[in-house]
């Protein structure tokens, strides 16, 4: 697909918002559906502090499609009923993008995530940072995540994470 800039921007923004919506709805299959059906589809969540010191370890290290599928199992089956649930609201804003080839575009966007624990009901910021994405473009004009790294400015999380950022 050779997209014009407005078409490409629309495809990117649709995907960014679909992901925010799936996460904020706690719809883990919906979250997974935003990723490309390729073995190397991956999601990482890591403090920028680690990256800056060449430390690859992260909060979440799902470097293949199988691990993305397992994360749906963690949240929906393994951890069910053990944690204090919380609402999130993701605010995402595309800041730059670069088309690599006909099927691939690299996108940087800022995010902030508000968290409201269901028990306490007091809203606070869970994390702020950048998504470093590589997206796959399809013939129908849609986009999927091939690679996403949620790189957190927040090096000390204010609580444990259940859902991906």
């Amino acid at each position: 697909m050779t997209a014009t800039t407005p078409e490409l921007e629309t495809a990117i923004d649709r995907l960014l918002l679909a992901d925010a919506n799936a996460l904020d709805s706690k719809d883990m299959p919906g979250w997974l559906a935003n990723y490309a059906e390729e073995d190397q589809a991956s999601y990482y969540c890591r403090a920028a502090e680690n990256t800056e010191h060449n430390l690859e370890l992260g909060f979440m290290f799902d470097d293949c499609r199988a691990r993305l599928e397992d994360r749906v199992t963690y949240v929906n089956e393994i951890w069910a009923g053990t944690f204090q649930d919380y609402r999130t609201r993701h605010f995402v804003q595309r800041v730059s993008h670069r088309q690599v080839d006909a099927r691939t575009v690299e996108v940087v966007s800022n995010f902030s995530v508000f968290m409201t624990p269901m028990d306490a009901g007091v809203t606070q910021v869970l994390a702020a940072g950048r998504y470093l994405d590589t997206m796959r473009l399809s013939d129908d004009g849609g986009a999927k995540l091939l690679f996403r790294r949620a790189e957190l400015d927040t090096s000390v999380l204010p609580r444990y994470l259940v859902y991906p950022i």
């Binding site: 890591r46 403090a47 680690n50 430390l55 690859e56 370890l57 992260g58 204010p158 609580r159 444990y160």
Partner: peptide, 8 residues
């Protein structure tokens, strides 16, 4: 390998 930092 790296850090995970959190407040409880």
């Amino acid at each position: 390998l790296g850090y995970q930092k959190v407040r409880y």
